[in-house]
Amino acid sequence: MDSLRLVIVTGKGGVGRSAVAAALALRSVRAGRRTLAISMTESGGLGEHLGVETLGPNPHEIRSGLSALQVERPAALDEYLRLQVGIPKFARLGPLASAFDALASAAPGIREIVTMGKVLYEVRRGDTWDLVVADGPPIGQIGSHLRAPRTVSDLVPTGRIRDQAAWMADILADPARSALVLVTLAEELPALETAEAMIWLQNSKLITTKGVITNRVLEPLGVPVSTGPSKGAVHEAALLHHGLVEEQTKWLKQTPDGPRLPYLFGATGPAEVAERLADLLESL
């Protein structure tokens, strides 16, 4: 991933998207890259996985080489209008921001382009970050986000917003600079949704999918359940583990090749989870 400037992480809700995004950011910092972690949703868990309680709308240094922020719509919208669309400083933003809000409830791509715009703006500030890791929207919303620059171009035949959309689409589509990472589980719904998303992503050519990470994979016990006691907690835990492995094996067959992260037993908190996943990703 050395030349990459942007990694967007997505996946179905509850698969550990934020934990993996945090782990990828930690791995990048450990490799000596100046890294920015961005939460693209306001209710995400990226902050706690990075060991901070809250994230603000501006890059905040968490530790040497690692900064983080959370895209907040009002702040991102102001910044989008000022820095990207080029609304002069003296102009009052209020009315324009309201126009945007009105549009965002009906017109496609407007809401998403503000969020994507913040992420891509940070990527374009070439001298500041070596890598931006974005904890992206859930997989069901990733399409509308990736498509946003194109959607807006189609909707708005002329104007400054259209010009902005062009460079955004370029960065996303450049395989040397941008990649998407999917996180999934070896379970029915995530597996099916990931397979569907893979096809769509491949056809859309909006961004290169770098890999699919399967999270919380259990190792087979290696001995039959019957070698232990025939009842009690040992027996029940072995049965559960065995049954879960069997179920996972079924879905792993339908999961694209890629890194597999183990189920982390006894992790005490989100920050520990991310550190442990980063260790594992380093060794893969």
């Binding site: 609304i87 009315p95 324009l96 309201s98 945007f100 400054r160 917003i161």
Partner: peptide, 11 residues
């Protein structure tokens, strides 16, 4: 305000 919005949004 609408004129500005319209200019920014184009068309």
């Amino acid at each position: 305000a609408l004129r500005m919005a319209s200019a920014v949004l184009g068309s």
